[in-house]
Deep mutational scan, measured.
Amino acid sequence: GSKLPPGWEKRMSRSSGRVYYFNHITNASQWERPSG
């Protein structure tokens, strides 16, 4: 298991139950796992 880039964390969408990734530094969110 590799770590996520700085700022990123795994989140669960309440509406759909899907996992997404959220960056608390930039407030960005995306479905794809961030690389870096």
Rank of each mutant, 00 (worst) to 15 (best):
T26W: 05
V19M: 09
E32V: 07
S16I: 05
R33P: 12
G1I: 11
N27F: 09
N23C: 07
M12R: 15
H24M: 10
S13Q: 13
Y21W: 07
A28K: 15
S16H: 11
K3L: 12
I25G: 06
R14L: 15
S2D: 15
A28M: 14
V19P: 07
F22L: 04
A28E: 13
K10H: 05
P5M: 03
R18Q: 07
P34C: 00
H24G: 06
S2M: 11
S13K: 07
S29T: 14
R33Q: 08
S35N: 11
W31A: 05
E9L: 06
G36D: 13
S29I: 15
F22W: 08
P6L: 09
P6H: 09
W31E: 06
I25K: 07
T26G: 02
K10N: 02
M12C: 15
S13F: 10
G7F: 07
I25Y: 12
I25N: 08
Y21G: 00
V19S: 07
R11E: 03
L4W: 04
R33E: 10
P34E: 02
L4K: 08
I25E: 09
G17K: 10
E32I: 07
K3A: 14
R14I: 15
P34H: 01
W31Y: 09
S35Y: 11
G17V: 04
W8H: 01
G17S: 06
F22T: 02
K10F: 06
I25P: 03
R18F: 06
I25D: 09
Y20R: 01
L4N: 02
L4V: 03
R14P: 15
P6K: 07
L4F: 03
S13R: 04
G7E: 06
Q30I: 04
L4T: 02
Q30P: 00
Q30E: 02
G7Q: 05
R14K: 15
P5S: 04
E9M: 06
T26N: 05
P5A: 05
W8D: 00
W8N: 00
H24L: 13
M12E: 09
G1Q: 12
R14S: 15
G36H: 12
G36S: 13
H24K: 13
S13L: 12
S16K: 08
K3Q: 13
G36N: 11
S2L: 11
N27P: 00
Y21D: 00
M12Y: 15
H24R: 14
Y21R: 00
S35R: 10
S2R: 09
A28W: 12
M12I: 15
W8P: 01
S16E: 10
S35H: 11
T26P: 00
L4D: 08
S13W: 09
E32K: 09
R33W: 12
P6T: 08
K10I: 14
G17F: 05
S29L: 14
M12V: 15
K3N: 14
V19C: 10
S35A: 11
G1S: 11
Y20M: 01
R11D: 02
R33M: 10
I25W: 08
S2E: 14
F22H: 07
G7I: 03
P34G: 01
W8V: 01
Y20H: 03
R33S: 07
P34V: 01
Y20P: 01
R11P: 01
E32H: 12
S16P: 06
G36F: 14
R11H: 07
T26K: 04
K3D: 14
P34D: 01
P5R: 03
E32Q: 10
I25F: 12
F22N: 01
I25L: 10
R18I: 06
Y20A: 00
S15I: 13
E9P: 00
G17E: 04
R11A: 03
F22E: 01
K3S: 14
E32F: 09
P34F: 01
P34M: 01
K3R: 12
Y21M: 00
M12D: 05
R33Y: 13
M12K: 14
Y21T: 00
R18W: 03
S15V: 14
N23D: 03
T26D: 03
S15W: 11
G17P: 03
R11M: 06
A28L: 13
L4Q: 02
S15Y: 13
P5E: 04
S2W: 12
S29E: 07
G7P: 07
S2Q: 11
K3H: 11
S13M: 10
I25V: 11
R11V: 05
H24A: 10
R14W: 11
P5K: 02
E32Y: 08
M12Q: 11
F22I: 06
E9N: 04
S13P: 02
S29F: 15
G36K: 09
N23V: 01
N27A: 08
P5H: 04
N23F: 03
K10E: 14
P34S: 01
T26H: 04
R11Y: 07
I25H: 09
G36Y: 13
Q30Y: 05
K3T: 13
G17T: 05
E9S: 08
G7D: 05
R33I: 12
Q30D: 02
E9V: 12
L4G: 03
